[in-house]
Design a binder for these strands. Structure first.
Lengths: 209, 209
DNA sequence: AACAAATGTGAACAGTGTCAACAATTGTGC
DNA sequence: GCACAATTGTTGACACTGTTCACATTTGTT
């Protein structure tokens, strides 16, 4: 067998390239669309090359999931940056919590494939604090939510004794709406209905927390 | 080629048998575990036999999903049957809404594989009203929730102007908690923490609706 | 310069969903 | 009764997937 010099040796940053290709696939078709052979195909490399950087297909998908969570974090951060510091501290604190929810929901609707990928493969609570899944601020979606809730307590809006486990309640509500809207039974709602449902839901959380 | 009499002809009710086998697979390993060839293997039939009853693998999975929703409905119904009619009508109405949520969450934790299957394949709002996904009472999970909310309005607990879209809010919260607990980042919570979170969540919904 | 580690390729295997052609059973019109 | 069509299953094949093992080539180390 003749072997000439290979041009595609030492790709340079194959790890990152594979994650990037997988992310694009997930963006278009969700977690099931990220198939190992297609990822390597798009990267211009042999299927087995992926095994030098990831133990499994699952490991690759996990990396893509982390990247998706980071994008989600940036969506939240963007929403947070919109709010202007008014005089009332409690109003600002409330606005920040709503911004977290709004950013979460906006990302789910804008990038349903990646959103589903972010939570498809079993993510641990450790992942929710891993730097891979953090946005530009260095905080993960979960940490951004926690910070908003802390702010609510500091501003005196939320009693301290209700703070414990509050992220679970807020997260559940928003996450559930996102899931039901993008591929659950609430799919097919038009833009107006969705924003209405989102607003009502965030009001419910604020009131019922 | 010699062809003798076949013993496995006219299975009788292959359609139902396939759904049953698929349901068992989903129960053990979630939606990804229901693989067409294994389903037919367990039913003692050739892979292609399934194509006489289902257009696709997706169609088979959809049927399993409907069956899972029916089981979910029965879990809710069981929880509803536990509540005794006390004197106060508003207390009963509130208890019924909590029962719907409790049955939902209990099923998600008891049968995570089937629960995930119920909402894995894109379910329409039509499916939420289809008789295939109804429990013994003839109502689907969504319809059971709607009925509970109607009861809340009748009892004067929930103002009528807040009734519109209320199922989406309640459903989102409970569904989100279920998802996060069974394979989301909230996995690993022990029994006590889960029931605590469930109680707090249902309180939040009742208060914030 | 010799050698080991890292990073890619090639060939192969079991397993999957699906299709086209065929066969056996069951039902139907005369 | 009986030819004939519809139903329901089987056989064989194909393209595709994730993964393993052996091998080749490049890069880093002593």
């Amino acid at each position: 067998m003749i072997h000439r010099k290979r041009s595609t040796y030492r790709h340079g940053d194959l790890h990152r390239a594979l994650v990037a290709a997988g992310t694009e696939l997930a963006r278009e078709g969700g977690p099931s669309a990220v198939v190992l052979r297609e990822v390597t195909r798009r990267t211009g490399v042999t299927p087995n090359a992926a095994y030098r950087h990831f133990a499994d297909k699952r490991a690759l998908l996990h990396a893509v999931s982390m990247a998706a969570q980071a994008e989600l974090a940036r969506s939240i951060e963007q929403e947070l940056s919109r709010i202007e510091p008014s005089g009332d501290a409690s109003d600002v604190a409330k606005a920040r919590l709503r911004a977290v929810g709004a950013g979460y929901l906006r990302y789910a609707q804008t990038q349903p494939g990646l959103f589903r990928t972010a939570f498809a493969e079993h993510a641990d609570l450790r992942d929710a604090a891993a730097p891979d899944s953090a946005g530009d601020s260095g905080l993960t979606p979960f940490q951004l939510l926690s910070a908003a809730l802390d702010g609510l307590v500091e501003a005196g809006v939320l009693p301290a004794e209700r703070r414990l486990g509050a992220e679970f309640l807020a997260w559940s509500s928003v996450h559930g709406l996102a899931m039901l809207v993008i591929d659950g039974p609430l799919r097919g709602l038009d833009e107006e209905q969705r924003t209405f449902a989102a607003r009502r839901l965030l009001e419910m959380v604020e009131k019922g927390l």
